[in-house]
Each structure stands twice: as structure tokens, then as C-alpha cells.
Design a binder for these strands. Structure first.
Lengths: 345, 345
DNA sequence: ATTGGTAATGGAAACGTTTCCAGGTACGGT
DNA sequence: ACCGTACCTGGAAACGTTTCCATTACCAAT
């Protein structure tokens, strides 16, 4: 059928030289006479020879591939992250093996194992919540790991993070500056580091600004669309006195917008809305949504550099200490969805 | 430093058996005594042995990987496609190598070459426009290829497509049914198969419905955000008599929404807007946007099946004939952005 | 003319698997 | 007691590279 594919041996035979010489010509190392080089090149071209990365990687003990693990490729932040990783990989001559955990630790563990078996040069992950054993295990066998977005529950893994705390602070300060005092917070799952952190930053900032804390204004949702919607609905219904809402992620932002519309609240006349995480549709809303942007692609790029450029940083060597995480700044993108608080409602 | 990684030889030595036996135990083939199996398993566990996919793939001449090539991972359709491919790959025990062409044929060619060198079992691509040589070349060396979204300019490659023509037809019929006669069309680049096809379907459908064609209502944009915006602005400005606009892709839909807002046109009271391609923000717009949905994830899944399940279909065998492409139906999602035409404007 | 050095070359080992093949052991049937 | 058979096992080859090392050839300098 499909004839056995062309190997370096075939090229050597056709060119009438040894395999070592062909290898030298093709890799450009060592010395070889111009005349021989010509012959080899001609033979390779004539046979349409394609070197096998398998043989090469086996010999070199290096595959030039990096494993990228995200919860969901259709999520805008994850996609932006992937974009950055791809760009970095390209500039480093690596390729990327992608898989999605769907935020399931068991599935994540399978994927990590597969990455290890593929002998990836390193793994970049936006880890699922829970289940840290497989990470430790991967590092134990010498695979470098870098976390992005949050440090998971695994200590000692180097990470690239956005400055969520400062991001939340900036938007809360902005809202308070506009005059808001009763600000609702729609938070992600308390089980996730990100959800926890942002909620903390929220209450902390209010405290620093001398705004009376009100736990009735803080609600949590699981990470589904339905749960986000339910949380937003319950908050808007229960607390008709709130004048602004901060959504802790883009799913919750979406829910807030939808619920506000459902309740016939004008934005920002009746209620101001802002969210953490900037996504494409924020600009298309009417009014466009004020949001805290995280530099997703930059984070991916930095993660790639951290993984492959800093020897030992992400690797086995520093098992106990990922060093200080790389923290990238967020940016408050002010659009039209926030204004002074409504007199009453 | 990092001690040489554990091989099957180490496991054999520890268990006091031959490497062949270890291989049999681990792969579950052949017969081995329970006692020996135990010893091998124990040794593997104790050493934390991780089989190398490199050695395995080299011997088996099969990597279990598929190459996925899309223009841009942050584009919602591409991401949905990737999601489907990942799911299919998982069910088939394959993994996915991802790269992005940024719609650049030269970059695409590099990536395809890399895939070939990696000896992927097959390639799924949403091909860039132009430049078909590398596809022919890949197939020549026996790599299966499946196209998604459009057939590119390369004949004979099997493909999974959405029924764009029917999709456009359905939305045009819907608009005409509402009473619209002067419908603007914002089209993608005429250089892309998709852009061409949708524009054709648009005028064709109008003709079939006995609506007077008006070439002044059709404008084309390049595939950048800026160009889309400019095209939409020029159309709205030039033709104040139009009562509805159909955007040929989501970038153009975005532009239409933005420009309508800019011109202070109420949707759908002053102008109706619809677009081809459904994306997350369509539901968040105010009003939510009517759109033609393509089943991105399904298309990816089907592409995976076509690639790996149909022997010879995507492969070398059928070089000259990709067979009839698999065509998946689109769905018209009616939301609130279209209504009867305004009396005047 | 001999030597020493350098450039060019090919053979062979190694990377980690799977699998063919041959050999060995145990056991049941005659 | 012998043979056939089934089960179990290990050695070795093969997959396609890269690179070490040895060999040859050539040239310049003595």
C-alpha cells in the first residue's frame, strides 16, 4: 500500500554516501564538501525526504513540544492564554500539544500522564481545582510545570498570575469614587483560588475605604451559566437597594447584564455594572461594560518563557520553591456601564 | 543532574525478567503468569516507570496524534471547532497538536511541514486562503487531511462543511418575509471561499424571491475589525434607505451593531440586523441578535471521525476524490434584532 | 620523502519500545 | 515412559535519527 516512508538511509543510498554524512548535511553541523552536499540535497529533494521527528527526538531525548492544559478552549481567557503560549512556542521552535480538563481533576490527571509519556519539554496549565497529586508526580519525573491564572493548591510550582487583587481594588475604588456604597458582589466558587481571592479583595477594599461591610450583598455561584444566572437573579431580587454590582468573572458579568435587563433596570441609570475579566462582548453591550482586563496572551507568553528559558526554575531543581510568581498588572477599562448611584429604586 | 529517566530495561532488571515480558505485562498482550505479572507491576510502580511514547511510536510507526490547524484560536468558530476535535480525539485515544496560521499561507506551509515531520496520523485544517502546494505535498507523503469550513482552493481533499448556502437563504427568506426589500449585505473578502459563497447565496436568494437586486447594497470588507467597521459605516451612510442588514460573519455583525449605535438607529425599529455565525455575545446584545448558527463543535467531531475512522477516505488512496463533502445543517436562531421594516428613515 | 595536521567520510552504537522466534517447562493423554 | 501441546519466557531485531570514533586522503612544512 502506502510504500514505507523515505528514511535517511534511502537518501544516503541514492546520494551514494553514508547516513552520517546525510545527517550532517541536513543539520548543517560538521564539515562536508560542497560537492557531496549538493548530491545529498539533490537526493533528498528527489525523494521528497521528510526527516522523522520521532527518530530525532528519541536520540536527542528532547521533543521540542510543550503540553498546554486549560479547562475549556472556548473560554475567552483560556483561548487568549493559548494564543500567547502558541506565539511563544513558535518563537522558541517548539510545538504545542493541547488538551482540555473541563475542570475535572481526574481528566486532568489523565492528560498530565499522557503529556509525561509524550515526553513534553514542559507543561503549562491553568489547573483545575482540587487534585494535586498528578502535578507532584509529573515534576518528580523531571517534567517542568508552570501554572497560570492561579497557583492551585499545589505549593512550589512556579506561576504566572494576573494581579487580581489590585484589579478588584481598582474597580471597587472606581465605584466607590462614583458614590456607590451598597455594591453587590457576584463571586465565583469559593472552592477556586480565584473565586476566593477576588472576594477577599472585594471586602478588603471596601473596608479600607471605610464602607460598611454587608455580607448580604455578597453571593457565590458555581461555575455554570445557570448557576451564575440564579445567583445574579437572587441578588437583584433580594437587594433592591444596591446601586452597583461587581461581577467576579465574565460568566457572572453576563448574568448580571441579563438579569438587569430582565428586571427592566437601566444601566447605568438604575444600576451600575462592572466585571472582572474583559471579553469581546463587553464592548458590544449597550452600554459597553466597564471591566478589569487581564493580559491573557501576555500571561501565556510569559509562562512559555518561564518554562523553557529559565533553566531549573520550573524544573526538578526547584521542587520546593517556585520562586515568587510572575505577576502581571491588570487594567481597568472604563466604559459606559457605571455612573453615579441612582437616588432610589 | 536529572537522572536518566526510567526505561523498560530498568523495570525488567528490577523485576528480574526480560524486557519482552515487561512489555507484555504493560500492554496486556500475550500470556504471562500471574506471579510474574505481579512482580513486574510492583517493579514498575516502585520505580515510577513512565513508558516513552517516543520509543513506542517509532516502533509502531504510528503516533496517535492529529494536527489541528486553525487561523486563530481566539476566534469563536475556530475555538468551537477545536473543542469538537479535542473531544473526538479523546474518544479515539489520540492527542492533538495545535497551531495557528493567522491566515498566512507561508506560515501555514511551515506548520504543515512540521506536522508531517511529527508524523501525525492526520491533519484537520481550516485552511488559509491561497497556497495549496503544501497540502498536496502532505498528502503525497501519505498524511491524511480533512478540511473544515470551506474546501480551500485545493480540490480532492475531503471536507466537513456547514450548509452556508442554506443558512444564508434561511435568514434572507426570514427578512423578506418580514417585509424587507432593501437589505444591505456586509460580505467577507471575495478572496475567501466562504466570503464568495455567502455573497452568492445572498443575491441568489433575493433573485429567487423576486426582490430587485441592487448592487449598491452589497459591500465587501477585508477580514480585519477596522475594515469591517469601515465597510459597515460606508453602507449605513450611503444607503439611508435600507431597512435591514445581513452581516456575512461575526466580525461584520459586530461592526453593524456598533455602527447602528453610532448612527443612533434603534434596532429593530429603525433597522433590522442579522448575521451569519452565532457567537456568545449575540445573546447579550440589546436587543439580542438574530443569527445563523453553524455547529462548530459537531463539525470538528465529524472531521475527526472522517480523518481516522474512514480508512482511505482522507488518505492517500483517494487522492483525486475527497468524495462528497460532509455537509452539516445550519440553524436560524431568531432573537430580537429583526422586525418589520421602518416606514421611513 | 617523511611527517603532521586538517578536512571529509562512513560504520556503529545508542535512544526506548514491540514483536518475532526459539527455547524451556509442565502437564495430560496414550 | 514418552510425546504432544500449551503456556511462559527472554534474546534480538527493527523503527529513524545523531554523534562518537576511526579511517582515509590530501596538503603544507620540514
Amino acid at each position: 500500500m502506502a510504500s514505507r516512508s523515505i528514511t535517511i538511509k534511502d537518501v544516503a543510498a541514492t546520494a551514494g554516501v553514508g547516513v552520517a554524512t546525510v545527517s550532517r548535511v541536513l543539520s548543517g553541523t560538521g564539515s562536508v564538501s560542497p560537492r557531496t552536499r549538493e548530491r545529498v540535497l539533490a537526493a533528498a529533494k528527489q525523494l521528497d525526504y521528510r526527516p522523522s521527528a520521532l527518530g530525532r527526538s528519541l536520540k536527542l531525548q528532547r521533543t521540542g513540544s510543550i503540553g498546554l492544559l486549560i479547562p475549556d478552549v472556548t473560554d475567552p481567557f483560556s483561548a487568549g492564554l493559548a494564543d500567547g503560549v502558541l506565539e511563544c512556542a513558535r518563537s522558541l521552535g517548539e510545538h504545542v500539544i493541547l488538551d482540555v480538563s473541563r475542570d475535572d481533576p481526574a481528566r486532568e490527571a489523565e492528560i498530565v500522564d499522557r503529556f509525561v509519556e509524550q515526553r513534553v519539554d514542559g507543561i503549562i496549565a491553568l489547573p483545575a481545582r482540587g487534585g494535586a497529586a498528578h502535578w507532584a508526580s509529573a515534576r518528580r519525573v523531571g517534567v517542568a510545570v508552570v501554572f497560570v491564572d492561579h497557583g492551585a493548591d499545589t505549593a512550589g510550582v512556579p506561576a504566572v498570575l494576573a494581579d487580581d487583587r489590585a484589579g478588584v481594588r481598582s474597580v471597587v475604588e472606581y465605584l466607590v469614587g462614583l458614590g456607590h456604597r451598597r455594591i453587590g458582589f457576584l463571586g465565583g466558587p469559593a472552592a477556586t483560588p480565584t473565586g476566593r481571592l477576588r472576594a477577599e479583595a472585594f471586602t478588603e477594599t471596601l473596608r479600607d475605604l471605610d464602607v460598611r461591610p454587608d455580607s448580604g450583598l455578597v453571593v457565590r455561584a458555581r461555575s455554570s451559566r445557570d448557576s451564575a444566572y440564579a445567583a445574579a437573579a437572587s441578588l437583584f431580587q433580594r437587594r433592591t437597594d444596591l446601586t452597583a454590582v461587581l461581577a467576579g468573572n465574565h460568566l457572572l458579568g453576563e448574568a448580571a447584564v441579563l438579569v438587569a435587563r430582565e428586571f427592566d433596570l437601566r444601566v447605568p441609570a438604575d444600576v451600575s455594572i462592572a466585571m472582572v475579566d474583559d471579553v469581546a462582548w463587553a464592548e458590544l453591550c449597550d452600554p459597553p461594560l466597564t471591566a478589569v482586563a487581564r493580559p491573557a496572551a501576555d500571561m501565556g507568553y510569559r509562562a512559555g518563557e518561564l518554562l523553557l528559558r529559565d533553566p531549573g526554575r520550573a524544573g526538578e531543581r526547584s521542587r520546593r520553591d517556585g520562586g515568587r510568581p510572575v505577576v502581571l498588572p491588570t487594567e481597568l477599562i472604563v466604559r459606559g456601564s457605571c455612573g453615579p448611584p441612582a437616588r432610589t429604586r
